[in-house]
Write a protein that binds this DNA or RNA. Structure first.
Lengths: 374, 374
DNA sequence: ATGAAAGCGCTAACAC
DNA sequence: GTGTTAGCGCTTTCAT
């Protein structure tokens, strides 16, 4: 016969009080005499009582669980984002529930709708998943639940959102290359678009391209389709790196028809930047001696890669803080019956900070190349 | 006035059946007439019914949630492990709940005990967390719940466990260096220990050292404390890389007292290997031209790093399969009342497969150095 | 400050 | 095949 877990009843009986008093005592509610609370806590400890959260959640309708949706776990960026969000959620006494969609819009839709956890188990949700802006009508999926969009860049501000300094950060990245003497810069990330057409960029990569081409054009440097390579992952980055290397080698070979050789590459994320460096190395092109490369995100491995990667490091701790501030505000508001009388909280928006991190991949002097910069 | 979610009652009423029939129909139970099931499903769809899992879990005592505990999210190894486990769990129709302990034995203990989710909400648990073998009495913490230990290497087989091919894999790694001509191999990972003392190695790094030193000694090559560096992370790896570089430079400088220069480095994981390469580069030592380096794990970024990293790639898909087979067997066994009459399932053990992946970091000829090997 | 009653939404067990 | 009953363990409400 299995002796099953003690319930609140058992604790109450052992302490000689009612279940209600035991519940209040255990949850630290005021209005319980200290001596009574002590008795209850002692009984709970003695019995090794563990609250049954399913029962608690069923009755109270609150779970303290925050749902986090990302594209995948196994990527330098998402693993860092996940860790930052998890840390902040735990620090606030909440419980993170992290799910990956593996870049599937269907999976994202499911996570937000069909999935019975959403809206019943979770107190709030934070999502950074690809393609949401274009393919998934997020605002419609979210039935007024506490919800934060990360870097979805949607233009209609109906939801709380924390965005990255996409345009400004990538502009600064391109400017760094220019300041370091680059005059023919390749851009890796979003597909080519004219500057004017980028005014309506809807996603992060579009905004980053806007920033990079802005810096380049404003400096009087060339910007055209031959210098823009579409890539978001290391695999695509390798392909881009090969193309960039070929153009450099072609120019070196003395071919008079050759395009001028690239001397800098501005990447929309670190992941692709690693691929670009890899692709360049395949053809013997060295970074930073032959070409300088800068990424975006500030992933952890950028500091211990060889060459270490210069980047636009975004402040993910700040992102997590903002997201949870927005979420908890909405959760509290709902708990106080805020939504019942039509008084909905207006949507909040925030843009997180960044800093340019200069490492080997954009170094100008050989001595800097071997200095290990964190 | 907020119109709250429809319940099973509402669906049953709309379909003109009892709640029980509706429940059975929705859960795909047999013994429901097809026409009835269709009516119920239609009603559920029309009302946008979503099952309340807290209620379901409370009543049935099953959640279909698998608890996964790892040290951290933001590391190349754990992010890959997490993704593999998550994929397999989802593929089996279960729900992964992933938690990080951040290398804290306290956090691990909490995750397994104080945490009210464990043993009440979760159907099973999979843990790969550092220090569990030595500091946390896992077997005692687990109250007979379905539970799988990943690579904890504990000697008393009281729990289900999936282990890595630690000794064998690292032996193969060292052998690769030897076969490629290395004669003075540094080992990075576990602290130095005599071969005899490693007979009782209790953790993964100890076993890996046993494998490496076995290959080296059996080949008649030197193995002593001067060639062993303790490191598990990129940061430690950089320190080790600096020390290794100094010894190489010292020997090059013609100092007659100098130790022979290292020509190979066998690392206990890829994470440290990246650090070693980084540390070597800080002193201008090139990989693989000056020293060959091999890692362990087969993390994703090893293929697109520069140099790309040779490694012992362990089969994490297989790990996930084994772990879930063990878990589901135990869950089913418990559901069938297996534990009540004292018939406990004997503990299972498995060792996952590996393959040696040769990339640039151990290449012997220059031509191989620029070939991009996946 | 404490307790009694009621029920959250679902499903196991049993009747019909 | 379908319906009825009962209750999982907790917390909200309201009485004392």
């Amino acid at each position: 016969m299995t002796t099953s877990r003690p319930t609140l009843r058992d604790v109450a009986a052992a302490a000689g009080v009612s279940p209600m008093t035991a519940s209040n005592a255990l949850r630290g509610k005021t209005g319980v005499r200290e001596s009574t609370r002590a008795k209850v806590l002692a009984a709970a400890k003695k019995l090794d009582y563990r609250i049954n959260l399913t029962a608690s959640m069923l009755k109270s309708g609150r779970s303290n669980i925050i749902h986090v949706i990302v594209n995948e776990f196994d990527s330098p960026f998402y693993s860092k984002l996940t860790q930052a969000l998890s840390n902040e959620i735990v620090a606030r006494g909440l419980i993170p529930f992290i799910e990956q969609t593996r870049y599937s819009a269907d999976a994202a839709t499911h996570a937000l709708t069909t999935n019975p956890f959403s809206g019943q188990l979770f107190d709030g949700e934070i999502i950074h998943a690809w393609g949401l802006d274009a393919h998934v009508p997020v605002a419609a999926l979210n039935g007024g639940r506490p919800f934060v969009l990360v870097d979805a860049c949607e233009e209609t501000p109906t939801l709380d959102a924390v965005n990255f300094p996409n345009e400004e950060g990538e502009r600064a990245a391109a400017q760094l290359l220019i300041d370091h003497g680059c005059r023919n810069i390749a851009i890796v990330g979003h597909a080519f678009a004219e500057r004017a057409d980028l005014a309506h960029a809807q996603n992060a990569f579009g905004l980053r391209l806007r920033g990079a081409c802005g810096a380049i054009l404003d400096a009087g440097l060339p910007y055209d389709a031959s210098a823009v390579f579409e890539a978001g992952s290391a695999a695509d980055g390798i392909t881009a790196g090969h193309a960039i290397a070929r153009q450099i080698l072609d120019a070196r070979s003395g071919n008079t028809d050759a395009l001028p050789p690239f001397d800098g590459v501005c990447c929309a994320n670190d992941y692709a930047a690693f691929g670009v460096i890899r692709g360049l190395a395949d053809h013997g092109i060295r970074v930073p001696q032959d070409v300088k490369v800068i990424g975006f995100d500030g992933v952890s491995c950028g500091s211990y890669a060889t060459p270490s990667l210069s980047t636009v490091e975004v402040n993910l701790e700040q992102l997590a803080k903002y997201a949870l501030d927005m979420l908890t505000a909405r959760i509290e508001h709902q708990a106080n019956g805020g939504n019942e009388d039509g008084e909905t909280l207006p949507p909040s928006r925030a843009i997180i900070g960044y800093r340019i991190v200069e490492r080997e991949s954009t170094a100008t002097r050989p001595s800097e190349c071997s200095a290990h910069a964190l």
